[in-house]
């Protein structure tokens, strides 16, 4: 209120310079996003309505037919989409349940060596994704490690191995969970690591049991990390296609596989683009919804 003329103009000048600096700093990333995200997505959108033709067999008319087919329920792809959502939700829930204790242990129980251990947990990321998926074939196959063990112990006849271990929906979810656990342990670890330890001391000073401290203090304060972790798994796994391709068999086929097949084998880029864009839209909506939720959580915390 009691700002002098001079001060005000100085502040305006600062703001102008500041704004120019901000624009300069943002230009790089913005141009990058424009070139490598916005424009390609616009192209995909153009494909999805037939505005751009690629193949001589394309109809060459602009129409919303493929969107209509997808959204009016008659499409086989919608069922596949819900199946993929269900699988991703299951995987995400399992992964978070597995990763939380790991993050908890690292952040609160291990002393000085926690970063070394964290590095060890992330180490599998240094090996090839394909290799990690293919290793499961060796473990789960009919003559694989588990089936051999079962027949060796006599629990299962060697002529009748458990076949649903490999090439099934179960396999896809198992492998996806395995692959994402270390990635998810990270945000959980971070949220627990920055937890103010004096709160835990205060809780115990006030007579709370360890379980009660966890439920009333630790868990609520780390929830933002848990949600971030959940999204970390959920979003990429809905569109997953490599793992189902390698170990999914006939029942592990996912939404991402149909997008890949439409682009590379079916040569129907219009439907493929529609499916891809629909997925992008759903993920964007989820991000918007969860993002707000996350921020509210952070404020409450």
């Amino acid at each position: 209120m009691a700002v002098t003329q001079q001060e005000a103009s100085a502040r305006r000048g600062w703001r102008r310079r500041d704004r120019r600096g901000t624009a300069g700093l943002l230009a790089g990333p913005l141009i990058w996003l424009l070139l490598f995200f916005v424009i390609p997505v616009a192209f995909v959108a153009a494909y999805s309505v037939g505005a751009v033709d690629l193949f001589p067999t394309d109809p060459g008319v602009v129409s919303l037919a493929s969107w209509q087919r997808l959204l009016t329920g008659g499409s086989v792809y919608m069922g596949l989409f819900w199946k993929s959502i269900r699988m991703s939700l299951t995987v995400s829930a399992i992964v978070v349940l597995l990763a939380y204790p790991t993050g908890y242990f690292l952040a609160l129980c291990v002393g000085r060596r926690k970063y070394v251990l964290l590095l060890l947990i992330i180490a599998p990321f240094l090996t090839s994704y394909l290799l990690r998926v293919l290793a499961w074939k060796v473990i789960l196959g009919d003559a694989g490690v588990i089936n051999s063990f079962l027949s060796w112990t006599g629990m299962q006849s060697p002529d009748d191995p458990i076949t649903w271990f490999l090439y099934s929906r179960f396999t896809v979810m198992l492998v996806l969970a395995y692959i994402w656990v270390p990635f998810v342990a990270l945000p959980v670890f971070v949220s627990l690591d920055k937890l103010d330890k004096s709160l835990l001391e205060a809780a115990s000073d006030l007579g709370a049991s360890r379980w009660r401290t966890f439920v009333r203090v630790t868990l609520p304060l780390s929830l933002s990390g848990v949600f971030a972790a959940f999204l970390f798994v959920f979003i990429p796994t809905i569109g997953e296609f490599v793992t189902p391709l390698l170990v999914g068999g006939t029942s592990g086929y996912m939404y991402g596989n149909s997008i890949q097949d439409l682009f590379t084998k079916g040569l129907d880029w219009q439907t493929g683009s529609t499916l891809a864009l629909f997925l992008l839209g759903v993920v964007a909506v989820l991000m918007a919804a969860f993002g707000r939720f996350l921020r509210v959580r952070a404020v409450v915390a």
Binding site: V76, T250, S258, G266, D268, T271
Partner: peptide, 15 residues
């Protein structure tokens, strides 16, 4: 009619 074949084949895979 390859893209039509693909639609039917997708229905098989998604079933």
């Amino acid at each position: 009619r390859r893209s039509i074949y693909q639609q039917y084949w997708s229905e098989v895979q998604a079933a």
